[in-house]
Computed example of a mutant assay.
Amino acid sequence: MLKPKVCMLLCYLPFLDSRIFECEAKSLLNNGYDVTIIAPRKAGLLFDINGAPFNKKFRERVFYYQGIKVVTYDSERRSLNPVSDPLYQLGIKEDADFYHAHELNSFTYGKAIKQDLQQQRNKEVKLIYDSRQLIPDPFPLQINDHTKQQWHKTLLGNLQEADYVITVSNSIKSWYLAMDPMLSVEVIYNAPPLSKHIMNKNTPNDSFVVVHEGNMSRETFEKVIAITEGSNSGTDVEFKIIGGSRYGETFPVPAHLQNRVHIEQWVDYHTLPATMAGADLGLIDLDPTHSLNNMFAMPAKLFSYLNNGIPVVASKCSDIEKFIKTYQCGLVINKRNPAPADYLQVIHHLRQHPEKWAAMGSNARKVMEEVYNWNHMEKRLISIYQSLGSNQMPYLLS
């Protein structure tokens, strides 16, 4: 029996994106699906999760990596006409049973592929839109209203062909259902597999270690510097930044703080728990003032911190705030854009109440063990595919 075939469509994202490759693609592969990712090259090269080009590997146009087929194309060949675009052409060639799009643009190509396979080959395929962001976000001031209206029109047209929408927060799910109450929508959080070993601590370190994972804005980096400088001998603060700037950007640490602000380059997905071991607090600094995406966000860093039993401090964003207060796994500052002094106040509070810090860390780990690690999210993903593929049951691996 042939395995049902999944084709993931990417316009801008790297094929090694943790949600795409490490979580979804591998889970589908392990549950009996044949998985292909069609990914863009920039200047002839594939690129890593931080945007850095792969100069010495992944040079083949088509290759297999950890059991997953990767088909590549040059993004410079992109066309305004979907049918002459290389992503569309390669997607048609794959002749898959499921097309799984990860951006609004690739969703548009997925729609065209689905319609044309039906018309040209009389083949019924399923289209899934994996919406990790709201596009268009109605709030950003730098995007003009005409562009937002065009994107919204494109989204509505694409949704007519969507068989399922996957989102990353309950508020984003509600947003889609408000547009079309008949949509099939599921929330699959950006949660990692449960880490096997975590460092158990009874009290915060003498020097309080705050960790930040992933992309960091320059504004947040400047807050990190200010927080570190603002701490005194009673609340010495160190920062561990994992990732930070993207390729081509630099965030220089002042010389007098280089022993207290440590920047780890982007690390392998599976080494994240070990890299952030020993941290006392996880930082999520998102400003939702002009971003509905930030207001609704449930970023991967949140679940990475919880996975390690690290309490979280966050700005006032609706979904994160509700989560943290529900599970008592951190503190939310009652401001959309907290100042360094606000974060220092939280750190001082936790230093003064180690029992509260310990309880929040315990709650963080517990909620990951019981509800939110990837093993639980994988069940949601496979359930979606099985519900769509009742006429093509997956070949289950023994």
Rank of each mutant, 00 (worst) to 15 (best):
A178H: 12
E369Y: 09
F239L: 07
W374Y: 15
G32H: 01
M393D: 08
S207L: 06
L286I: 05
I113D: 03
T250A: 10
T235Q: 09
G278R: 02
L344G: 09
P394S: 11
A359P: 09
L46N: 04
R132K: 11
R380L: 15
P82K: 07
A364T: 14
N105L: 10
Y129A: 02
A112D: 04
T326L: 15
K3F: 02
K325S: 15
R380D: 07
E229C: 10
Y327S: 13
C23W: 05
Q133W: 01
S169I: 07
H256D: 15
H290S: 07
L134P: 03
A300M: 12
T72P: 01
A358V: 03
M179K: 12
I143L: 09
M360P: 11
R121H: 15
F221N: 01
V211N: 00
H376S: 12
I92A: 03
I135P: 00
V253R: 08
F323R: 02
D285R: 04
F47N: 06
L134V: 15
H290R: 08
Y269E: 02
E369D: 12
L117T: 01
L134G: 04
I263P: 03
P338F: 09
P14W: 06
G248I: 07
D34E: 15
A277Y: 03
H256R: 13
Y164L: 13
V187Y: 06
G110A: 07
E94I: 04
D48Y: 09
E22D: 11
N391G: 05
L134A: 11
G278K: 04
R19S: 02
P252D: 10
P136H: 09
F303C: 06
C317V: 13
R61L: 08
G110I: 00
A279C: 05
I225Q: 10
